[in-house]
Write a protein that binds this DNA or RNA. Structure first.
Length: 433
DNA sequence: TAGACCTTAAACAGTT
DNA sequence: GAACTGTTTAAGGTCT
């Protein structure tokens, strides 16, 4: 088996910011994504008409992503999604059900699958409804589809974990506290590396003769379809960047004050992987990890791309790097949505698992960092409250700046002032309650 | 041959 | 305390 591009920890490829990952992760997790997109569309149109074709600022992605993102569920169970893209290209509708994997796996009951653990994990995750799986579910999926591992030495599980930890293609999504449903984190595929994984997946059974390929291969049809889907996603990533930033803004607005009452999350996989000098070196990712004190200069170019990655977005991303983004429409409807704030002040987000039937045992939506950042606020003592309040005000200002930068990108500066001030007012009201 | 990629094993710490 | 999860290191094999 040939090397898989961009799949090892020591690789120094350019990477997306944690924000994008978070945004996309959130998108994956939003079971009701089409509705969210639909809900956002009219509002986006209001502001989007002024800057139709400005790449990052183009909100047309909202329109297109209705179709595009519908196809994100490439591995999902249930009926296969029919994409207009396939219609356009004259492709048949791909089948992404388990059956599309069946052939090789069934044949490989006694022989080792021709796929690397990275690909196995990738397939498992992609096959999951929310594109996120706990390690245990990944085990299960692999076992289900590759009976070889049922009788294989247990070391393969170690290898799976090793891959998850080391391979930057995979990102850990912290489970929230208080989860009764299993331990450990959820693992997602970094969208940035999906092309690589897809390429590897595409290459593996056909292009190059796998080392241990003793079994059949994935359907060429399946592979080409998936590959095309992935290409479409890649094309849209720049747009999604903007969307991610927009959503981050929402998170920031809601969480900015609360955030300062909670230390940044513990070491994350992002940090870990950054330590390998690798892909997660995106400025925003770095800076958010370097906590509040970081003012190091970054690549202006990237800073431009992630102008929303200023302090606000960073702080926000430090939580939401995994999960805490809201739907796009909430950017415009922060105030009404803020009424979702729960007793712990942690709401206003969609839980990463809100729609996940498997992990839905968390009605509070204590998803990942976002809620972690809020859940413990009551535990904090009073002494530092004044300082925190001051910090919160500073953060507020930073949030304004960040929002300004971002919305400047989007060309919707005009509504910023009222939006933020209103949101701020509402947020304060909520806090007073 | 070197480097990249991948697998396997093991140790260890933290969590449940 | 056991089992699980996550991290890290190391060694060795394969391929380009």
């Amino acid at each position: 088996m040939g090397p898989v591009i961009g799949m090892t920890p020591d690789k120094t490829a350019e990477t997306p910011g944690a924000e994008k990952v978070a945004a996309l992760s959130q998108i994956y997790k939003m079971g009701s994504l089409p509705e969210a997109i639909d809900a956002a569309r009219p509002k986006a149109t209001l502001v989007g008409s002024e800057f139709a074709d400005d790449e990052l600022t183009n909100l047309n992605w909202l329109h297109e992503s209705t179709n595009l993102l519908t196809n994100f569920s490439l591995g999902s169970e249930g009926p296969p999604m029919v994409s207009p893209l396939y219609d356009i290209e004259g492709d048949d509708v791909p089948s992404f059900g388990p059956s599309c994997y069946q052939s090789p796996e069934q044949k490989s009951a006694t022989s080792k699958p021709p796929y690397s653990f990275s690909l196995l994990i990738y397939m498992a995750i992609e096959h999951s409804p929310n594109k996120c799986l706990p390690v245990k579910e990944i085990y299960s999926w692999i076992l289900d589809h590759f009976p070889y591992f049922a009788t294989a030495p247990t070391g393969w599980k170690n290898s799976v974990r090793h891959n998850l930890s080391l391979n930057k293609c995979f990102q850990k999504v912290e489970r929230s506290h208080g989860k009764v449903n299993g331990k450990g984190s959820l693992w997602c595929v970094d969208p940035e590396y999906k092309p690589n994984l897809m390429q590897a997946l595409k290459k593996q059974p056909f292009s190059s003769e796998p080392r241990n390929c003793q079994c059949g291969s994935l359907s060429p049809h399946y592979l080409s379809s998936v590959f095309k889907q992935n290409q479409v996603r890649t094309l849209k990533e720049s747009d999604i960047d903007a969307a991610a930033a927009m959503m981050l803004l929402n998170t920031s607005l809601e969480q900015g004050i609360l955030e300062c009452e909670k230390p940044l999350p513990l070491k994350t996989s992002l940090q870990k992987k950054r330590n390998y000098g690798n892909a997660f070196n995106h400025p925003s990712a770095i800076r958010l990890q370097e906590s509040d004190s970081s003012t190091t200069s970054i690549d202006p170019k990237e800073d431009h791309n992630y102008s929303a990655s200023s302090m606000a977005a960073q702080r926000c991303a430090s939580r939401s790097s995994v999960s805490s983004l809201s739907s796009v429409d909430e950017v415009y409807e922060f105030i009404p949505k803020s009424s979702h704030v729960g007793s712990d002040g942690s709401e206003g987000f969609h839980s990463e698992e809100d729609t996940d039937v498997d992990y839905e045992d968390d009605p509070l939506g204590d998803s990942g960092y976002a809620s972690q950042a809020c859940a413990d606020t009551s535990h904090k003592g009073q002494p530092g409250k004044r300082m925190r309040k001051q910090s919160c005000q500073e953060i507020d200002e930073e949030l304004k700046e960040a929002a300004g930068s971002l919305l400047h990108l989007a060309g919707i500066r005009t509504c910023l002032g009222s939006l933020i001030s209103t949101a701020k007012t509402q947020n304060q009201k909520q806090r007073k309650k």
